[in-house]
C-alpha cells in the first residue's frame, strides 16, 4: 500500500474484505457472459483503486487486456492446447486474486484480530494469515536472490540458465528455502510472544468493529455481484 495518503477504503474492516472475496471468486468462475465478466473485472479494479493499490490495479488491467488480445485469435484458430484454456481461466483467476489483494494488504495484526472475531479456530486464523501475508513476499524474496546471484555472476543470462539448469535451480532453491525457514522461525517466535499459543480469548490493540461504512460497502458489494450474477442467468448463461 502507498504510504502517506488515506484512500476511501484503507480502514475498511478486514472481515468485509474477506466476506466479499467469497462471492467475487464464485461469480468470477460462474459468470459466462463476457460483457458481465468485464463488468466484474472493472468493479474489482475500482475495488483495488479504493484501497490505493494503483500499481497492482494497473498490472492486472494490462494482463487482462493482453489475455483479451490473444483470446479471440486463438478461438478462431481453435487450438486444443493449454493457452486457450489459460486465456479463459487466468482472466477469471485474476478477478479472484484482485478480490484477495486488499486482504493481503491488510496489516497482519488487524488481519489476525479480524479473523479471530469471525470465530474461526486458531489454526485456521493462523493459516489464513500466513497464507495471505506470505504470498506477496515470495516475489520480493526471489528478486533479492536474483540480485545476489547477478552480483556473483550466476545464472544471469538465458544461455547460462540453459547451459546449467540444475546449478541455477539449486542456486535459487537453496537460498529461497533457507530464507523461508528463517521467516518461519521468526514468525513462530513472533506468534509465541503474542501469546497466540495460549488458551482463551485473544485481545488485540486493533479495534475491530463494523461501522456504517463497513456495512454499506458489504451490502453494496454483495448487491453488485448478485446483480451481475442474476443478469448472467437471465441472459441465458447455463452451467
Amino acid at each position: 500500500m502507498q504510504q502517506g495518503r488515506i484512500y476511501p477504503l484503507t480502514s475498511l474492516d478486514v472481515r468485509v474484505r474477506v466476506l466479499l472475496l467469497i462471492p467475487v471468486s464464485i461469480a468470477a468462475m460462474l459468470i459466462t457472459d463476457e460483457t458481465l465478466l468485464c463488468c466484474l473485472f472493472a468493479l474489482a479494479a475500482v475495488w483495488l483503486l479504493m484501497f490505493g493499490l494503483h500499481k497492482k490495479a494497473l498490472a492486472y488491467i494490462l494482463v487482462y487486456a493482453a489475455l483479451w488480445a490473444v483470446l479471440f485469435p486463438l478461438r478462431e484458430m481453435q487450438i486444443p492446447g493449454s493457452i486457450p484454456l489459460l486465456t479463459v481461466y487466468v482472466r477469471r483467476i485474476i478477478i479472484a486474486v484482485m478480490g484477495a489483494a486488499p486482504v493481503m494488504s491488510a496489516p497482519t495484526g488487524r488481519l489476525i484480530a479480524s479473523l479471530h472475531r469471525m470465530k474461526l479456530p486458531k489454526t485456521a486464523v493462523l493459516s489464513l494469515a500466513v497464507f495471505f501475508r506470505f504470498m506477496p513476499t515470495v516475489s520480493m524474496e526471489y528478486r533479492c536472490i536474483r540480485e545476489a546471484q547477478k552480483f556473483r555472476g550466476i545464472g544471469t543470462s538465458i544461455a547460462g540458465v540453459l547451459l546449467h539448469p540444475f546449478l541455477t535451480a539449486e542456486c535459487i532453491l537453496v537460498p529461497m528455502l533457507m530464507r523461508t525457514s528463517k521467516v518461519a522461525d521468526e514468525l513462530a517466535a513472533s506468534v509465541s510472544v503474542r501469546g497466540m499459543q495460549l488458551e482463551g480469548e485473544c485481545s488485540s490493540l486493533h479495534e475491530v468493529r463494523m461501522g456504517a461504512v463497513d456495512w454499506l460497502v458489504l451490502v453494496l458489494g454483495f448487491t453488485a455481484v448478485a446483480v451481475l450474477f442474476a443478469a448472467d442467468r437471465s441472459i441465458g448463461g447455463s452451467v
Binding site: 493449454s82 493459516s127 500466513v130 506470505f134 523461508t180 525457514s181 518461519a184 513462530a188
Partner: peptide, 28 residues
Amino acid sequence: LKEIIIVVLFSVLTFIVSMVTALPFAAS
C-alpha cells in the same frame, strides 16, 4: 502454531512452484 506456520509457508512455496513450472510448457 510453529509447525502450522512452517507447513503453510512451505505449502505456499510448492504452490508457487507448480504455477511457475506450468508456464514454460503452456503452449502444449
